[in-house]
């Protein structure tokens, strides 16, 4: 048994020495950092569905980008990103407008828009025969096929998120706790409200090819859901996200599982463990409560 584990560890070490594995590790940590920084804002603003929504909103853009690349011989990567960015931002804008004009709850407006956009993408794919579009790649990503450009884009978006969060930290905190008071007393609320969907869209787009849109949604929710933050920047949420991403990647390498799914599964198990611990603790408290 011990010998088997030793062999596995040796294999893992030699595996991590490969270039593609190092690139995968770097990109996974960048995605982990990105999600760790954004997680408190997304969870505290009750926008966990935004990542999932965006993952679907970008779909017709990806389809359009793919066919534009084939038809006009454009570079595939840039074409996909542009298409995804356009429908992602357009969809986010539409969600916000539907919410205001029709007075809908935010999640209803999001579900209506995401399904509409996704359906448009599905129709487009069904009508264009003779071409193959790997849908799974966009939903679940493929961290093992990432290159230097992907890492640079991830690093650039991470830098932007870090700067914006740390420089305007007080404004983010005020917006998160009581937006009306914050607006009244002069915090930069309008700027932040416009910036927030842009940051989340950029994060989901850049994470799309690494771990997939759906997994980005989970990774942006897990850290702050498990460790409730006291500020828009939470060091422990960031560290948790980095460690989770690293362990998830190792688990994926060791068990030959998809990377994004491994990280999310690991995080989900931790959520369940926390739920059990909290539930047991609260029961103990009830039973130990003094009776007068």
């Amino acid at each position: 048994m011990l010998q088997d584990s030793f062999i596995d560890l040796t294999m893992l070490r030699s595996f991590l020495e490969a270039d593609f594995a190092q690139m995968a590790l770097l990109c996974t940590l960048l995605v982990g950092g990105l999600c760790g920084f954004l997680s408190p804002t997304i969870v505290l603003k009750q926008r966990a569905y935004v990542g999932d929504t965006l993952a679907h909103l970008v779909f017709p853009g990806l389809v359009a980008g793919y066919f534009a690349a084939v038809a006009f011989d454009w570079p595939l990567w840039g074409s996909l990103m542009c298409g995804a960015a356009v429908t992602g931002l357009l969809g986010s804008f539409l969600v916000e407008r539907l919410e205001r004009i029709l007075n809908l709850p935010p999640d209803s407006a999001a579900v209506l828009t995401l399904t509409g956009f996704f359906a448009a993408g599905v129709v487009a794919v069904s009508k264009l025969r003779g071409t193959r579009l790997d849908l799974e790649r966009f939903l679940f990503g493929d961290v093992l096929n990432l290159g230097q450009t992907d890492a640079l884009v991830l690093a650039a978006v991470l830098l932007l998120v870090v700067l914006v969060l740390l420089v305007l930290r007080k404004d983010w905190d005020a917006w998160l706790s009581d937006a009306e008071f914050a607006r009244l007393i002069g915090f930069r609320i309008e700027f932040i409200e416009r910036l927030f969907p842009v940051l989340v869209t950029a994060a989901v787009l850049t994470g799309l090819f690494a771990v997939g849109g759906l997994m980005m949604s989970a990774l942006m929710t897990l850290p702050a859901a498990l460790l409730p933050p006291k500020s828009a920047f939470s060091l422990r949420a960031l560290l948790f996200s980095l460690i989770l991403s690293f362990l998830g990647l190792l688990m994926a390498f060791a068990l030959d599982w998809p990377v994004g799914s491994s990280i999310v599964l690991l995080g989900f198990v931790l959520v369940l463990i926390k739920a059990i611990v909290v539930s047991v603790k609260s029961r103990k408290t009830i039973f130990q409560a003094p009776s007068n």
């Binding site: 009750q46 998160l176 009306e180």
Partner: peptide, 14 residues
């Protein structure tokens, strides 16, 4: 402005 108490985001452990 002093809003009603429920206006403060209940998920934010500030």
């Amino acid at each position: 402005y002093v809003p009603q108490t429920h206006k403060v985001n209940r998920y934010f452990q500030i």
